[in-house]
Amino acid sequence: MTSMPGSAGRTDGTMSPRPETAAGPAQGRPRVPRFTRAEHRVHRATAALMAVCVATAACLYLPFLAQLVGRRALMVTLHEWSGILLPVPLLLGLASRALRADLTRLNRFGPHDRRWLRAVLRRRGARPAGKFNAGQKLYAAWLAGAVLVMTGTGLLMWFTHLAPLVWRTGATFVHDWLALSLLIVIGGHIWMAYRDPESRVGLRTGSVDAAWARREHPLWTPEDDKGGGGE
């Protein structure tokens, strides 16, 4: 909700060195807190439900997978309920002050975010970022909107008595094509996370390398989290 958090920014035109490996943080380097356990759990639960949605959708729409898996009724049930439950982890996570503060950050788009986007498009220049860069903010906003639309259209397809046939036909069209775009965007999110092991370590362990934080998110300091605001 991850973003929930996704791709990490860079402050120059070259790819940032990888100070950590995927196995875990390097020893002896100063680290700073980034995410709480509640945020980690919300991200993991949301990712698991999304994975079930995508996997069951693939089994329903791709003939070779449908034949391989079979049990279409079970796939339909799993797909429907994982979709309905998708917003639940985030809603439960709102009890966490840290998560609410990060959602506020994700909803703020400032001048430095526009500079970050220009630098990415031009493939040069500084990429200033707070705790979340502009790419992560756009991903979170797009994902939130997509989940709401998918839930609404899915309900129209599930409960056929809620709307006339023409509405259900339109809902099916929107649901199917939005699902395809969702798959592409999530694939990009996973790819960017793969390219930045330290970002993954931060989400898993709650802390990141201090040098990485200064390089990738120079406008953010851990003290911002204690105050519940700031970039």
Results as ranks from 00 to 15, higher is better:
Arg122Gly: 11
Ala101Val: 01
Leu94Phe: 05
Leu85Lys: 06
Asn133Gly: 08
Val76Pro: 03
Arg97Ala: 07
Leu106Thr: 09
Gly130Asp: 09
Leu99Gly: 09
Leu94Pro: 03
Leu143Ser: 10
Ala119Tyr: 02
Arg105Asn: 12
Val76His: 12
Pro128Phe: 03
Arg114Thr: 14
Leu94Trp: 04
Pro128Glu: 02
Lys137Tyr: 02
Leu91Tyr: 01
Glu80Val: 07
Met150Gln: 14
Ala98Ser: 15
Pro87Gly: 05
Ala129Ile: 07
Lys131Trp: 02
Trp116Lys: 07
Val120Leu: 14
Gly135Lys: 14
Ala140Pro: 03
Leu78Ala: 10
Phe132Asn: 11
Tyr139His: 15
Ala146Cys: 06
Gly83Thr: 12
Ile84Gln: 00
Met150Lys: 10
Val88Leu: 14
Lys137Val: 02
Arg100Pro: 15
Leu121Val: 15
Ser96Tyr: 06
Trp81Tyr: 06
Val149Lys: 13
Leu92Trp: 05
Leu99His: 11
Asp113Pro: 09
Met150Glu: 07
His112Ile: 05
Trp142Asp: 06
Val149His: 10
Ala141Pro: 07
Asp113Gly: 09
Pro128His: 04
Gly145Met: 05
Ala141Tyr: 03
Asp102Arg: 11
Arg122Asn: 14
Leu143Tyr: 06
Ala98Asn: 14
Ala141Asn: 11
Leu106Cys: 13
Arg114Ser: 14
Pro89Tyr: 00
Leu78Pro: 01
Ala140Arg: 14
Arg123Asn: 04
Asn107Gly: 15
Ala146Phe: 00
Arg127Trp: 02
Thr151Gly: 11
Val149Arg: 12
Ala95Pro: 08
Leu90Arg: 01
Arg123Trp: 02
Pro111Ala: 10
Val88Thr: 10
Leu91Trp: 01
Leu94Lys: 08
Phe132Ile: 14
His112Arg: 12
His79Val: 12
Met75Gln: 07
Gly110Pro: 08
Leu138Val: 09
Arg124Tyr: 10
Ala95Lys: 05
Lys131Phe: 03
Leu121Tyr: 15
Leu86His: 02
Ala98Trp: 12
Lys137Glu: 04
Met150Gly: 01
Ile84Met: 02
Trp142Cys: 12
